[in-house]
Design a protein around this nucleic acid. Structure first.
Length: 645
RNA sequence: GCCGUUGUAGCUCAGGGGUAGAGCACUUCCUUGGUAAGGAAGAGGUCAAGGGUUCAAAUCCCUUCAAUGGCUCCA
């Protein structure tokens, strides 16, 4: 038998007989390793550990700790779930069952049976029982005809539908215990690796993601190679829930919803409004420095404008229904763009005026479907950190780059580091439907955007078919505490609306020329941004942004007067402070200030009153000792300065 | 909009065919206490709304509304 060379990740090369498996390679290193490997990556392709290797190869042995290892583990768990379901409820039909970031799911057609949360325990027990059998996952190559025959006999129309898109030679089955599934693999060596199982939740999901199709029952679960890891994961989920902006927003009295106001229409309580004002002040200052001019526009406009802008045909479904007045339909504005274009058109523009940058914290209304509403992250009324930049093609790169730099500046101030920059492009097949039919402009602007991104060294991913209808865009994707993905901010190119609104400037040659338009909203909407910040900071807003910066805690009523004196000094210095004058002990007052996430506490008693000082305790317990009131004001101002620069 | 779950005091929740419970918060009183919960008393609810079954409904059934986990969607 011929020898092959196996290169391990550390660069070492070992020789083995051809046909050796990853499992055997692991065994040759150590038995312990062999017991723990879940799958193997051979020349970049993940396969099961029992697959023979017949050529020279780079080999990575995948363990639970590896992302691909987890993926294989959870994918195999989905098969185990299916096996258990088939044992418990014979005749159920299966859709797809992939691994996801945290666990796996399987889409199931239960027929007439109703599967509910009460059945979770039974299902978990069955899965563990089957796991203990240590059934091997066996790979079988089958022909398309054989595969169709198998599922026809089984009566599983979903698998047959999936098979239609596959070709002979690429169809494999995996079998473990009494369950066989159509699957590309790879899988665990056997079910015994799965030691802990948790069925997480139940949801409806349309077959193939199409709402015209039948809705299947999706069962989410997660599994682990150790019980302790499951416990740790469940604890982590509990902690994440405590960070949920909906919980924190209520606890910290930031915002509220009310049945009489309506779903998706948040009410901002005084503390929430204070944060809004602070964010706006910061944005306005930054935008002023960057050469933006502020504009204002009304909340409603005539139908004709939205027809002209092209929004109405595309977005009618997500706009509030029109109000009719004197035979004319008016719509609540769902976007600021057309208003700004009208402002641009209101006065003549020369190339000398460009770039023109209009900024407005515009309030928009969008009729999001009820099921899409989610705390502050998806709402029906929103205040957007909007601006539109009108520039020449020659100015485009510099403007686009400046906007990107603005994003990065903001992200630094807020300490946002877990995000993905997503460059969304059009799909040429959908020109004229989802996208403005201007193929050359699409390619041209997409190239420009890519160049800016590449030149500025910002990491990004490119996705097809996610652009706005009027041009390519860059979205900043973030994740909520419970793992839901959102677009936080957006930066869009628009080469369509200048034409629609007949926007122009007079160029050097005294000719009319169309400007390029950039839409940008780095601070998102107040709603989504504050929702995000609540989770990002776990409620602990930094000093500059916290609605209550200082809590003054008199040790007893005797120091009330001195406390008020301190409060007045702070107020005069624009420091937001309040006195906790309840008849409670200091320990209690500190606890409550901590729970309200107040960054600084001033403890005032006999000593402070006599010396005309304050004793400062930072949120979390750090003791800054005693200082004069003036020194404290200086300290606060210095801290804020640091946070904003 | 679709599938599942839930709706009891300001909050977190228990209870459950026979006229409503706890803890925290709130109010008052006592206490004047130095770095994460001092004590006592009091006040608080058409049990989401509407309809039905029943001698009797917060409890069972139906409808609606809202929230929630997903799906679809997301300018």
């Amino acid at each position: 038998m011929s020898e092959i060379k196996i290169t391990l990740p550390d660069g070492s090369v070992r020789e083995y007989p051809s046909g050796i498996t990853a499992h055997q390679v692991a065994q040759s290193i150590s038995e312990g390793l062999a017991r723990n490997i879940i799958a193997a990556k051979v020349n970049g392709q993940v396969v099961e550990t029992s697959r023979p290797i017949t050529t020279d190869a780079n080999l990575t042995l995948l363990k639970w700790e590896d992302k691909e290892g987890k993926n294989t583990f959870w994918h195999s768990s989905a098969h185990l779930l299916a096996e258990a379901l088939e044992a418990l409820y014979p005749g159920v039909k299966f859709g797809i069952g992939p691994a996801i970031d945290n666990g796996f799911y399987y889409d199931i057609d239960f027929g007439d049976h109703k599967f509910t949360g009460d059945d979770f325990a039974k299902l978990e027990a069955k899965m563990l029982e089957l796991a203990k059998k240590e059934s091997a996952y066996i790979r079988k190559e089958v022909s398309k005809a054989e595969a169709i025959q198998y599922f026809t006999e089984k009566g599983d129309q979903y698998k047959i539908e999936l098979l239609q898109d596959l070709n002979d030679g690429e169809i494999t089955f995996y079998e473990q215990g009494n369950f066989t599934d159509l699957c590309r693999g790879p899988h665990l060596p056997n079910t015994g690796f799965i030691k802990a199982v948790k069925i997480l939740n139940l949801a409806g999901a349309y077959w193939r993601g199409d709402e015209k199709n039948k809705q299947l029952t999706r069962i989410y679960g997660i599994t682990f190679p150790k019980k302790s890891e499951l416990d740790a994961h469940m604890l982590m989920l509990e902690e994440a829930k405590k960070r949920d902006h909906r919980i924190l927003g209520k606890d910290l009295e930031i915002f509220a919803f009310d049945d009489d106001v309506g779903p998706g229409l948040p009410l901002w309580l005084p503390k929430g409004a204070a944060i809004i004002e602070l964010l706006e002040g910061f944005a306005k200052k930054t935008e002023k420095e960057a050469g933006y001019q502020r504009v204002k526009s009304p909340h409603i406009a005539k139908e004709s404008m939205y027809i002209k802008s092209g929004h109405l045909p595309y977005y009618k479904e997500s706009m509030f229904p029109p109000m009719e007045l004197d035979g004319i339909n008016y719509y609540l504005k769902a976007m600021n763009c057309p208003h700004h274009h009208k402002i641009f058109a209101a006065t003549p523009k020369s190339y000398r005026d460009l770039p023109v940058r209009y900024a407005e914290y515009g309030t928009c209304y969008r009729y999001e479907q009820t099921g899409e509403l989610f705390g502050l992250m998806r709402v029906r009324s929103l205040q957007m950190n909007d601006a539109h930049i009108y520039c020449t093609k020659a100015q485009f790169e510099a403007e686009f780059k400046a906007v990107n730099e603005l994003y990065l500046k903001y992200f630094k101030v807020f300490g946002i580091d877990k995000y993905v920059m997503r460059f969304s492009k059009h799909d040429p097949k959908k020109l004229g439907q989802k996208y403005i039919n201007a193929p050359e402009l699409w390619l041209e602007t997409e190239t420009m955007v890519r160049e800016v991104l590449v030149n500025s060294g910002i990491p990004f991913i490119e996705v097809e078919d996610e652009a706005a209808f009027y041009g390519p865009k860059i979205d900043i994707q973030i994740w909520s505490a419970i793992g839901r993905e959102f677009t936080l901010a957006t930066n869009q190119v628009d080469f369509a609306q200048a034409d629609r609104f007949d926007l122009y400037f007079i160029n050097e040659k005294s000719e009319k020329e169309r400007p390029l338009i950039l839409h940008r909203a780095p601070l998102s909407t107040h709603e989504r941004f504050i929702g995000f910040l609540l989770e990002h900071y776990a409620g602990k807003f930094p000093l500059w942004l916290n609605p209550d910066q200082v809590s003054i805690l008199p040790i007893s009523e005797k120091y009330q007067e001195y406390s008020e004196k301190v409060l007045n000094v702070l107020k005069k210095s624009d420091i937001r402070a309040l006195i906790d004058d309840r008849s409670e002990k200091t320990g209690k007052k500190i606890r409550d200030a901590e729970l309200k996430r107040v960054p600084l506490m001033l403890i005032l008693g006999e000593k402070e009153q006599t010396d005309n000082t304050v004793t400062v305790r930072k949120q979390g317990g750090e003791d800054l000792g005693s200082m004069t009131i003036e020194a404290f004001v200086e300290y606060v101002n210095a801290e804020i300065e640091k946070q904003l620069n």
